[in-house]
């Protein structure tokens, strides 16, 4: 095996995958072209729009700026991995649908992932904290208010769930 090509192992949306990748192959191309998971979008390709957001070991990163070989061994979650294995939607997905947070849908995969990441680390964020957290993801359609509303609605949901289990 030369050092231009590498066998890497990833867990993508809970499924173990083994791939042969070139040293300079980008994670976004592996996800979209090699694995056929086109939920992750290719926007600017230069790290400025965050349409290519994926979770690597729980952390949102830019797929267009990450070499696939550098995340060997990682757990990757893409938009397709947000719903439960039985297909039922995650509360954040329902919230996006119910709050006019989706128009063309291009920013949505990235927005959903960073929203999930926010709610996991901070279940009751303020509006400022929400806006701060999604700042890196560009949306050209909605004006962001629907997205913020959707995320806010999940914080109440979680609170209600926690209170109901006391």
């Amino acid at each position: 095996m030369d050092k231009n090509n590498h066998i890497i192992q990833l867990i993508v949306n809970r499924e173990p995958t083994t791939l042969l990748v070139a040293s300079n192959e980008l994670l976004i191309n592996v996800i979209r072209d090699r694995l056929g998971l086109t939920g992750t979008k290719y926007g600017c390709g230069t790290g400025q729009c965050a349409a290519c957001t994926v979770l690597v070991n729980g952390q949102p990163v830019l797929g267009c700026l990450t070499l696939a070989v550098s995340v060997d061994g990682a757990e990757i979650v893409t938009a397709e991995g947000v719903a439960a294995p039985d297909g039922s939607l995650d509360p954040i997905q329902d919230a996006f649908i119910g709050n006019a947070a989706i128009q063309c849908g291009f920013c949505t995969p990235g927005m959903i992932l960073v929203s999930k990441n926010l709610l996991e680390s901070s279940p009751t964020p303020s509006e400022d904290e929400i806006r701060e957290h999604i700042k890196g993801n560009l949306c050209r359609c909605t004006g962001y208010n629907g997205i913020v509303k959707a995320i806010k609605s999940c914080t109440s949901e979680k609170k209600r769930t926690e209170l109901s289990t006391l």
Binding site: A50, P60, L62, G136
Partner: peptide, 9 residues
């Protein structure tokens, strides 16, 4: 610096 995504890398 950057945004949360760049700061994670």
């Amino acid at each position: 610096l950057g945004n949360i995504l760049t700061r994670n890398r």
